[in-house]
């Protein structure tokens, strides 16, 4: 009898847990017209990526390509207020699904798998993955990575991309070769402390962490990363609207201008 009660309680708990996100999932998400009517656009952005989404802690303002992009979209919608929500690789999906934010513009790489869960616009920027290493590390090409520990961000595509690139060069990298850490500053701290031998992420992000003790490995540049604006899967109308805007700005050079204005290197082309 006791066992039965325990079982029933466990199952109830699981459902209660599952129910937490339930109400929000039902909401279909806001269309462009809804946002214009509400007068506020809610955008999930990075806070720690110089050039793309950086939070100035002194005055609480954001700057970067993705911030300018968000303001530009707000202009199109005729919305005065843009509400920025800080996101990490681990939270951005949930925030979209729950309807807390309308879109993510936060170095969110488009992949086939992610397209199963969210809508993405045409890429507004293409980056390539690279490595940041200490000057005395001796890592100058991909074959030097054998037996090394590489720091990557939790939930980033870098790990898979580097594993594939290394496999092409005949080096096998396993889970044991990677340390997944929550934020980029933590990976930088781990690199400084010698906890990881290399810091692997998209080149544009690495550029913000270069100092006297380290450098980006020029010879290792692989796996183009296409950044797109992500929206909730079932809100196709809103996704189509955003895609129209981004496509237009790519064609008329507005996007290239925003990239140049923020001091970011132009999109990677193979």
């Amino acid at each position: 009898m006791k066992k039965l009660i325990a079982l029933i309680m466990s199952i109830t708990m699981l459902f209660a847990l599952a129910g937490c996100g339930g109400g929000d999932d039902a909401a279909a998400g806001r269309t462009a017209a809804d946002i214009t009517a509400d007068g506020v656009l809610k955008v999930g952005v990075k806070t720690d990526v110089p050039g793309f989404g950086l939070l100035n802690t002194a005055d609480g303002t954001y700057s970067g390509v993705e911030i300018d992009l968000a303001y530009k979209i707000a202009d199109e919608l005729g919305v005065e207020n843009v509400e920025f929500t800080p996101i990490t690789a681990a939270t951005r999906g949930q925030l979209l699904d729950s309807g807390d934010i309308d879109m993510v513009a936060g170095t969110f790489t488009i992949t086939e798998e992610r397209k199963m869960s969210w809508n993405f616009t045409t890429p507004y920027y293409t980056d390539a993955v690279s490595l940041l290493v200490k000057n005395d590390s001796g890592i100058e090409q991909i074959t030097d990575l054998s037996g090394k520990i590489i720091g990557v961000a939790t939930g980033s595509t870098s790990m898979k991309a580097l594993t594939a690139a290394a496999a092409d060069a005949g080096v096998e990298l396993t889970d044991a070769n990677f340390s997944e850490l929550a934020t980029y500053p933590e990976i930088k701290a781990a690199l400084d402390a010698g906890r990881v031998d290399a810091f692997c992420v998209d080149g544009s992000i690495l550029a913000g962490y270069v100092d006297d003790t380290n450098h980006i490995v020029e010879a290792i540049r692989f796996s183009p990363q296409e950044y797109g604006i992500a929206t909730k899967k079932d809100n196709t109308e809103w996704a189509a609207y955003l895609d129209g805007l981004v496509t237009g700005w790519l064609e008329d050079g507005t996007m290239a201008q925003i990239i140049a204005d923020n001091g970011v290197v132009a999109s990677f082309t193979e």
Partner: peptide, 23 residues
């Protein structure tokens, strides 16, 4: 938080990679 390879780390890694099946 320090990439310990424990249960939470694995769940986190799985939840945030590939198809991101966090549920």
């Amino acid at each position: 938080m320090i990439a310990g390879g424990d249960l939470m780390y694995r769940a986190n890694a799985y939840a945030t990679n590939d198809v991101m099946s966090y549920g």
